[in-house]
Design a protein around this nucleic acid. Structure first.
Length: 259
DNA sequence: ATGGCCCGTACCACGGGA
């Protein structure tokens, strides 16, 4: 089963690029972030025509996540537990039933800038809620993964110029501590479990020729429970997508699991 | 050498992104 995550930076602006990538990459499951659309305006028919089941959790203008799946989706839930007043659409999960069932969570973790401030407080509070959901997934002792735009640069090697990011919400020590606290519960970060190459990124800013200089950061991740990590066959970044016409600033990252 | 963008909303820049 091939599962991909892709922050598309607006479904309306990315319809063609997303359609082309789906046709070529043929993921069984695609987790999308920043659809920037209400559910009613999401072009679900286009994906249904390609054979995908579509589940969205959108809102007006900002954020928004979705799951596309060629396999049946069961027990779909929307919103990260732990704050009933949170109105930002950043979390969706579902069980994908292939050879065996896998619980799949798609997430768009808050950016958190500027630091300090209420947006950074929100990011850290959101990560505390994520920690609790992660504990529950581990306790289930079932194959499960959490994937998406984490807005976290895990290590210095995950940025071309780490010195530019030391005071940024994506790389601040509090952010990385919260990330490591989750990983250290017992999750496998799929990309580094399969790849030790330097200069592997998933985001390049639109500004300052970042793509041409490969001035990127790796912030889109898969975290897997042990039962899911046992099934991991491969994890790769489709970085060439960034060089196409009208690209998102992120590129797809995907895993292949034996499920 | 320096600085450089894009999206959605609304119709004018502006908030937000990272």
């Amino acid at each position: 089963m091939k599962i991909a995550t892709f922050n598309i930076n607006g479904i309306k602006a990315r319809i063609n690029a997303l359609s082309d990538w789906l046709d070529e990459a043929q993921p069984d499951v695609a987790l999308l972030q920043e659809i920037k659309s209400i559910d009613e305006n999401f072009p679900r028919e286009m994906f249904e025509d390609k054979g995908y089941n579509v589940q969205t959790h959108g809102q007006k203008s900002f954020n928004g996540v979705a799951i596309l799946s060629k396999l049946p989706l069961e027990d779909v839930t929307r919103g990260l537990p732990g704050d009933d007043d949170d109105e930002q659409a950043r979390w969706i999960e579902a069980t994908v039933v292939g050879e065996q069932a896998v619980r799949i969570c798609g997430l768009y973790l808050p950016n958190g800038n500027p630091v300090p401030g209420p947006k950074y407080d929100y990011k850290l509070a959101w990560m505390e809620r994520l920690y609790k959901r992660a504990q529950e997934l581990l306790r289930s002792e079932e194959p499960a993964l959490m994937a998406g735009d984490y807005n976290i640069i895990p290590q210095a090697e995950d940025a071309k110029k780490p010195e530019d990011w030391v005071d940024d919400a994506l790389f601040r020590i509090e952010s990385r501590t919260a990330w490591r606290k989750i990983v250290n519960l017992g999750f496998t970060e799929a990309f580094r479990a399969r790849n030790q190459l330097p200069e592997q990124y998933s985001f390049w800013d639109y500004q300052a020729g970042a793509w041409n200089r490969n001035n990127g950061i790796r912030i889109d991740h898969f975290l897997m429970t042990p039962q899911c990590a046992d099934l991991l066959r491969d994890c790769q970044i489709d970085s060439a997508i960034r060089g196409r016409e009208k690209p998102s600033d992120h590129v797809p990252v995907w895993v292949d699991i034996a499920a």
